[in-house]
């Protein structure tokens, strides 16, 4: 699944480590999410969306 995580993080000048600490996940998880290697659970998707003040659909792009 594609997402705008890297773009949004860079827009806000946040390091991967800082985002990871805020979401209570490892830095590797943030990296994997940004590269599209890992799809988050619905809980983590909500946490990410709340962190950026957006909806899940604004960040994660579902393509069939």
């Amino acid at each position: 699944m594609k997402n705008r995580l890297e773009e949004l993080r860079k827009q806000r000048n946040i390091k991967q480590e800082e985002l990871a600490a805020a979401l209570e996940v490892s830095r590797q998880t943030i990296s994997a999410l940004e590269n599209g290697r890992y799809n988050p659970s619905i809980t983590l998707a909500f946490k990410v969306a709340r962190f950026f003040g957006l909806s899940i659909e604004d960040i994660f792009i579902y393509e069939e």
């Binding site: 996940v25 998880t29 890992y38």
Partner: peptide, 11 residues
């Protein structure tokens, strides 16, 4: 603790 509970690590 974060590394242990990290959902990707658990997966």
């Amino acid at each position: 603790e974060i590394e242990t509970n990290d959902e990707r690590n658990m997966a």
